[in-house]
Design a protein around this nucleic acid. Structure first.
Lengths: 145, 145
DNA sequence: CAATATAGTTGACATAGTCAATTATTGACC
DNA sequence: GGTCAATAATTGACTATGTCAACTATATTG
C-alpha cells in the first residue's frame, strides 16, 4: 500500500487539481453570466481594493485589470473611486448589485454538498488551508528576490 | 493565536493559491517559448494520451485541444497517431524534441530551491498531495451525477 | 525643480475558451 | 444487416484573457 509519489508526480497531481478547481469556481460565475475573471474578481472584492492589489494577485499586466473592472462597471456590479492619500490609485468597491451577486457566489461555493472543499473534514480543511497559505507566502516571498 | 478561518476565507485563500500556482508553472514554459496551455499539455504528456483525456482534464471544449495540439505539432514537439481499437480517437505522443523540453520543464519545476512545493517538507508534501487527490477524486465523482 | 518611479489607461496583437455545424466512426437494437 | 443515436475530433465565428509598448497623471527622491 506504499504508493510513494515522486516530486514530478506530485506536480502533475497539482496541475490536475488546479485545472479542476478553477473550473469548479468559475462555473458558478458562468451560471450567473459572469466571465471567469469577473467571477474571481468579484469574489476577491469583499472589501474595496486598489486595482494594483488585484494586479499583484493575478500577477498580470495592469491593462488586464482595467478590462475586467470595465466589465464589472458595465454590469453595475462595481465602481472605481479615488483616495486622497495617493491620487494615482483607483480603488474598486462593489455596488449593491455586486454585493448581492457576490453573496450568491459565496453561498454556492460554500454549500456543503457542492464543490471542492466540501469533501474534507473540518480538520482536513484547516490542514489544507494552512499548507496552501504556507506555499503562497513562501512563493510570494521568493518572487521578490 | 487562534486564527480560525471561515469557509469563505478558505476559498479566498484557495483562489489566491490557484492564481499563483498557475503563474508559477506556466512561467517555466514561457521561458521556453511555450504558451500557457502548451506548457501544461506538455507536462501531462509523459505518456501518450488521447485528446479526449486532455479534454476531460481541462474540462473544455474539444476544439481547444485541437488548437493546442496543432501548436505542439507545428513546433515539432508532439504528433497525433491513430489506434486500431477506436479509429475515431487521436492519440498524442511527444516527439524527441518534446521529450527533451518536457524534461527541462520538469527539472525546473522540481528544482528544490524554486517554486511551489519546494517550501514544504517531505511529510508536508505527502500530506498536501493526498489532500488534493482526495479533493480531485471527490469532485470528479460528483460531476458525473 | 528635475529626474525617476508608480498607477492606471489605451490600442494592437496573440492565445485561450465557447458555440454551432460537420465528418467519421462506433455501439445499440430491432 | 441497416438504421439511429452517441462519441471523437475538426472547422469557423466569436468573445475573453493575456502581453506589449506608448501614454497620462501623480509621487518620490535628491
Amino acid at each position: 500500500m506504499n504508493t510513494q509519489l515522486t516530486l514530478e508526480q506530485s506536480y502533475l497531481a497539482l496541475i490536475e487539481f488546479l485545472m479542476l478547481s478553477k473550473q469548479r469556481i468559475i462555473e458558478i460565475g458562468t451560471n450567473n453570466h459572469l466571465s471567469s475573471m469577473q467571477t474571481i474578481t468579484l469574489l476577491l472584492l469583499k472589501n474595496p481594493r486598489p486595482m494594483g492589489t488585484l494586479r499583484r494577485i493575478f500577477n498580470c499586466d495592469a491593462s488586464n485589470i482595467t478590462g475586467i473592472v470595465d466589465g464589472l462597471e458595465q454590469k453595475n456590479l462595481a465602481t472605481r473611486f479615488d483616495i486622497n492619500s495617493d491620487r494615482r490609485v483607483k480603488m474598486i468597491r462593489l455596488l449593491p448589485n455586486g454585493k448581492k451577486l457576490r453573496n450568491i457566489l459565496v453561498h454556492e461555493l460554500t454549500n456543503d454538498h457542492h464543490y471542492l472543499l466540501g469533501c474534507l473534514s473540518e480538520y482536513e480543511t484547516k490542514n489544507f488551508i494552512e499548507l496552501i497559505q504556507k506555499i503562497t507566502a513562501a512563493t510570494k516571498a521568493q518572487k521578490l528576490t
